[in-house]
Simulated scan of single mutants.
Amino acid sequence: MRKVARVVLLDPDERILLLHGHEPDDPSDDWWFTPGGGLEGEETREEAALRELAEETGITEVELGPVLWRRRCSFPFAGRRWDQDEWYYLARTASTAQPTPVAAGLTELERRSVAGARWWTCQELNQAHETVYPTRLAELLRRVLDEGPPATPEILDTEIV
C-alpha cells in the first residue's frame, strides 16, 4: 500500500487547484486530480504534501492545514496497478497566478502524463463533465467551505477503478 499525501489547495477566492492528468500513451483517457504523491524515505505526510505541491506546481507559499479526508484507492495507470492510502490536507495560498507544472520537479512519468493545472470554483466542479478524483470532490469541498474542516478526517469510500 503506497502512502500518499494530497493537497486541497485553496486560493483567496476559495478556488481549488487541480492538475490535469492522462494515461501517458493516451491523452484522451484523462482526469483532474489534486496535487500530491507518495512519501519518500522517512518524510512525514505533511512534508510529502508540501514537497509534492512544490514539485508539481511550483507553489511554495502555503499554509498547510488539517487532514480533511482519507481514502484508499486502487487504479490502473501506466501499465501497472496502484494501491494507495491517501490523506488530503487543506492548504491555503495567497497566490492567484495560474500555476504550470514545473518540469524540473516532475518525474519522467509525470512529464508524460500531466497536461496542466487549473483553479476551479466549487460551482464549476459541480457542473463539470470531466472525471475528477476523488469522486464527490465538489460535494466534499462545498461542505468544507460551508462548515470548515471536519474535527477528525472523514474516511471516504474506497475507490477501485
Rank of each mutant, 00 (worst) to 15 (best):
E108M: 02
L106T: 02
S95M: 06
S113H: 06
E110K: 01
W119G: 10
E108L: 05
T100R: 06
R118C: 04
R111L: 12
T96W: 03
A117C: 10
A94S: 15
A94M: 11
T93Y: 09
A103N: 11
E110N: 04
A117E: 08
T100M: 06
C122F: 06
L109C: 02
A104L: 13
C122I: 15
G105E: 14
N126K: 07
A97G: 04
R118P: 03
T100L: 06
R111Y: 11
G105M: 06
T93C: 08
S95E: 13
V102E: 11
A91I: 06
L109Y: 00
L125Y: 05
Q98G: 01
V114P: 05
T100A: 15
R118W: 02
W120E: 12
L125Q: 05
T93F: 05
E110C: 05
R112H: 07
P99K: 04
P101S: 05
V102M: 02
R92I: 12
S113R: 02
W119T: 06
A94W: 07
V114T: 13
Q98W: 00
E124P: 05
W119D: 11
E124N: 11
L109A: 01
L106Y: 13
E108G: 06
G105V: 03
T121Y: 10
E110T: 01
A117D: 08
R111F: 12
L106W: 09
A94D: 12
T93S: 10
E124S: 15
T121K: 10
R112L: 07
S95V: 12
E124L: 09
S113M: 09
T96H: 04
A103G: 07
L106P: 03
S113N: 07
A94E: 14
N126G: 13
G105L: 05
Q98C: 01
W120D: 07
Q123S: 11
R118V: 05
N126E: 15
E124Q: 15
G105F: 13
A115Y: 04
P99A: 12
S95C: 14
T93D: 04
V102R: 12
T107Y: 00
E124R: 13
T96Y: 02
A103W: 01
T100S: 11
P99G: 09
E110W: 04
V102T: 08
S113P: 09
R92G: 14
A91C: 09
P99D: 14
L106R: 00
G116Y: 14
Q98E: 08
R112I: 00
A117I: 09
N126C: 05
E110G: 02
T107W: 01
S95N: 12
E110A: 06
G116I: 14
G116V: 14
S95I: 06
A94K: 13
L125D: 02
T107F: 01
L106E: 03
L125K: 08
W120C: 06
P101G: 04
L109T: 01
R112E: 08
P101E: 08
A97M: 03
W119I: 08
V102C: 10
T107E: 01
A104R: 09
T107D: 00
L125W: 00
T93V: 10
R112Y: 03
R111S: 08
A103T: 13
Q127G: 09
A103Q: 10
P99V: 03
A117M: 08
L109D: 00
W120A: 03
T96E: 13
G116A: 14
A115K: 05
T96Q: 13
G116S: 11
A115D: 10
A117F: 04
W119S: 09
